[in-house]
């Protein structure tokens, strides 16, 4: 009796940890998807009908062993890049991604030149 109980106990723990891992994967995806009918919320934060439906579909796809990338592709093919909270790096978004870095580099150069110039003026 004790053995049976223990076996069930461990099977239960094993199954619940598996489903927790599944949930974590799903939640990670929900957090990266924009709820398109809400104001600035991710799918994870939203309780709108649209968000609930999308979550259900994402969960089904995960159950069917689709990869995260396949799910993102499915969503962007229907709703565009806007549905991703992180803007993907591609030709049309290169400026967006690299302007801050360029500005930073230019700033450092200006700062460097100025200090060198001031020093040379002093000496």
């Amino acid at each position: 009796m004790k053995k049976i109980f223990l076996t069930f106990f461990f099977i239960n723990i094993f199954l619940s940890s598996v489903s927790l891992a599944d949930d974590k994967q799903a939640i990670d995806i929900y957090k990266k998807i924009r709820c398109l009918v809400c104001q600035g919320q991710s799918l994870h934060d939203s309780n709108s009908d649209f968000a609930k439906d999308l979550k259900k579909i994402i969960k089904e796809k995960l159950d069917n062993k689709e990869t995260d990338q396949q799910i993102y592709n499915y969503l962007t093919s229907r709703y565009g890049d806007w549905i991703l909270l992180d803007t993907p790096v591609k030709q049309s978004t290169l400026l967006l991604w690299f302007i801050p870095i360029i500005v930073l580099i230019v700033g450092i150069i200006i700062l460097f030149k100025r200090t060198v110039f001031e020093k040379s003026k002093l000496s």
Partner: peptide, 13 residues
Amino acid sequence: MDGSKAIEIGAYG
């Protein structure tokens, strides 16, 4: 009934 067909064709509502 569950709104899945609408999402399949990229609808919002």
